[in-house]
Deep mutational scan, measured.
Amino acid sequence: HNLTITQGKLFFHYNPKLCLSEIHKMEEVSGTKGRQERNDIALKTNGDQASCENELLKFSYIRTSFDKILLRWEPYWPPDFRDLLGFMLFYKEAPYQNVTEFDGQDACGSNSWTVVDIDPPLRSNDPKSQNHPGWLMRGLKPWTQYAIFVKTLVTFSDERRTYGAKSDIIYVQTDATNPSVPLDPISVSNSSSQIILKWKPPSDPNGNITHYLVFWERQAEDSELFELDYCLKGLKLPSRTWSPPFESEDSQKHNQSEYEDSAGECCSCPKTDSQILKELEESSFRKTFEDYLHNVVFVPRKTSSGTGAEDPRPSRKRRSLGDVGNVTVAVPTVAAFPNTSSTSVPTSPEEHRPFEKVVNKESLVISGLRHFTGYRIELQACNQDTPEERCSVAAYVSARTMPEAKADDIVGPVTHEIFENNVVHLMWQEPKEPNGLIVLYEVSYRRYGDEELHLCVSRKHFALERGCRLRGLSPGNYSVRIRATSLAGNGSWTEPTYFYVTDYLDVPSNIA
């Protein structure tokens, strides 16, 4: 807008934040220059609390790290170098490059900038070799853009010569660093050979998330399962459950009422301010606690030095998902009996873990797994792929695949051998790939016309006998059925096997 004052003059007093240069501009645009008398524009009460600059400061050096910015700028000295009290560095987070010096300023003089007072450097006698002032900004957020400017702080001049310097606002972004852990990993099994893994992005990506790394490792069953005799009275049979499938998407929606109208769909109840505040506090606490764990609990591995020492970490090797089922080394339970199943799973520490690289999504279907087997899954978020990966501390989750139908069934015939004193040795093959492992066998036998009897055969007993022995049988026709019990439950009964026990007292003698 054009402003013209045809008559009258300007009068400025007691404006401590208004620089004289701005008042002189007002004289020019209003056409009143030359009308004012000496005392109409006070030299001592206008701009006496402001830094009124008329020179431009330029930054000469900028260096960044993930949490620091090192700045240096060209030296500046007023005509009387004693008038320079120091520099004021202003900075704040700036997602967009549209910041002005006066953003967030209120009537009390406060604003949204963080201000650092910096002492002037030592003055050199040689004007050509003056030290460049600077400042190291610490405690910054990774991968965050900051708006920065600097200006001088000078003393009051009796001659009211307006001098000083100020830089333009520059924008500097800190470097990326390792992201925080992925949030809320959930693993479920939808079949006997697959596990579905879902997660949420890290709360602090500290860069642009480029991919996720998912490692999985087959877990050995508890050692007590191999040692305890679950045929003993009072000892509860062990059981394991597989990871249940995901709930429906509708039930997972946030901010939804727990109660549904019987007449149909209901609208979600909005969260109160107290609920939102509580969630923010919980989120802040979780982030602080995660940072504490990362800094205190997890110790970084030592990389190899120039002395030739090897990095103890196993090298990563990509495998196809079809090879995942046989990740671990199978060892027989008892070496003397080769027909026992290889369900003991000690994992070799030198073995390469299978892994998958996930790009542009937060889910993965891990296939080719062994049925009813526990897996430990390790999830890392990465925001750099080359020249070397920059990934987060791992988040861990466990899951067990679903049982395989008929995996616990005894394959092959049940054979028998009759000894003296009416002892019958029953023999059968253990299931080759049971659900988890076989903890015991149930032997059901009966003599024709009598009630059915049951015998429990422990895992250890089966390994020693290759089956079991029935003792003290009365003469007669017998039928026997056997079924295995694994961590997933009972298998199917075998087809009945028949044998006849004679009275050993009636056996004919070869003595003449």
Score class of each variant (00 low, 15 high):
203 S>K: 09
204 D>W: 09
207 G>L: 01
212 Y>I: 13
212 Y>L: 02
212 Y>V: 11
214 V>G: 15
215 F>Q: 07
216 W>T: 13
218 R>N: 12
218 R>W: 01
219 Q>H: 11
221 E>K: 15
223 S>V: 04
225 L>I: 05
226 F>K: 03
227 E>F: 14
227 E>Y: 10
227 E>K: 04
230 Y>R: 07
232 L>I: 12
232 L>M: 10
233 K>A: 13
235 L>A: 11
236 K>T: 12
238 P>G: 04
245 P>I: 14
246 F>D: 06
247 E>V: 12
249 E>Q: 13
251 S>K: 14
251 S>E: 14
252 Q>R: 07
255 N>E: 08
257 S>P: 10
258 E>D: 07
260 E>T: 11
260 E>P: 10
261 D>R: 15
262 S>A: 10
263 A>F: 06
264 G>A: 15
266 C>N: 13
269 C>K: 03
270 P>M: 14
272 T>A: 15
274 S>N: 08
275 Q>T: 13
277 L>A: 07
279 E>I: 08
281 E>A: 10
282 E>F: 15
282 E>M: 11
283 S>F: 12
284 S>M: 14
287 K>T: 13
288 T>A: 14
289 F>C: 06
291 D>N: 12
292 Y>F: 04
297 V>S: 09
299 V>Y: 11
299 V>T: 03
303 T>D: 15
303 T>Q: 05
303 T>N: 14
306 G>A: 09
307 T>D: 13
307 T>L: 06
307 T>S: 11
308 G>F: 05
309 A>K: 14
310 E>G: 10
313 R>S: 05
313 R>L: 07
314 P>L: 10
315 S>F: 13
315 S>L: 11
317 K>H: 13
317 K>L: 15
318 R>A: 12
318 R>M: 05
319 R>P: 08
319 R>M: 05
321 L>Y: 06
322 G>W: 13
322 G>E: 06
327 V>Q: 11
327 V>E: 14
329 V>L: 13
330 A>M: 06
334 V>R: 06
337 F>L: 12
339 N>L: 10
339 N>R: 12
342 S>T: 14
343 T>W: 09
343 T>Q: 11
345 V>A: 12
348 S>L: 11
350 E>S: 15
350 E>W: 09
351 E>T: 14
352 H>Y: 05
354 P>E: 05
354 P>T: 11
354 P>V: 07
354 P>C: 10
356 E>P: 14
359 V>I: 12
361 K>W: 10
361 K>G: 07
362 E>F: 08
365 V>T: 06
367 S>W: 09
370 R>K: 12
375 Y>F: 13
376 R>M: 09
377 I>E: 00
380 Q>S: 09
382 C>P: 01
382 C>I: 01
383 N>W: 05
383 N>S: 05
383 N>Y: 02
385 D>T: 01
388 E>K: 13
392 S>G: 01
393 V>E: 10
393 V>G: 01
394 A>F: 06
394 A>V: 11
398 S>P: 10
398 S>G: 02
398 S>E: 08
399 A>Q: 13
399 A>F: 04
401 T>N: 01
403 P>D: 09
403 P>Q: 08
404 E>H: 14
407 A>C: 01
408 D>Y: 01
413 P>M: 15
414 V>Q: 04
414 V>W: 01
416 H>R: 03
417 E>N: 02
418 I>L: 06
423 V>R: 15
424 V>P: 03
425 H>D: 14
425 H>K: 12
425 H>S: 12
426 L>I: 02
427 M>F: 13
430 E>F: 07
431 P>M: 03
431 P>R: 01
432 K>A: 12
434 P>Q: 11
434 P>F: 11
439 V>Q: 04
441 Y>I: 01
442 E>M: 05
447 R>G: 12
448 Y>H: 04
450 D>T: 09
451 E>F: 11
452 E>N: 06
455 L>I: 06
455 L>G: 06
456 C>K: 01
456 C>A: 02
457 V>F: 15
459 R>H: 10
460 K>H: 08
460 K>F: 08
461 H>C: 11
463 A>V: 05
468 C>W: 04
470 L>D: 01
473 L>K: 01
476 G>M: 00
477 N>A: 10
477 N>E: 07
478 Y>F: 04
478 Y>A: 00
481 R>V: 07
484 A>H: 02
484 A>E: 09
486 S>W: 00
486 S>T: 11
487 L>E: 06
488 A>C: 02
489 G>E: 15
489 G>H: 14
490 N>Y: 10
492 S>A: 09
492 S>V: 07
492 S>G: 07
494 T>V: 03
497 T>W: 13
498 Y>M: 11
501 V>S: 03
501 V>M: 11
501 V>P: 01
503 D>T: 11
504 Y>S: 05
506 D>M: 13
508 P>L: 14
510 N>W: 14
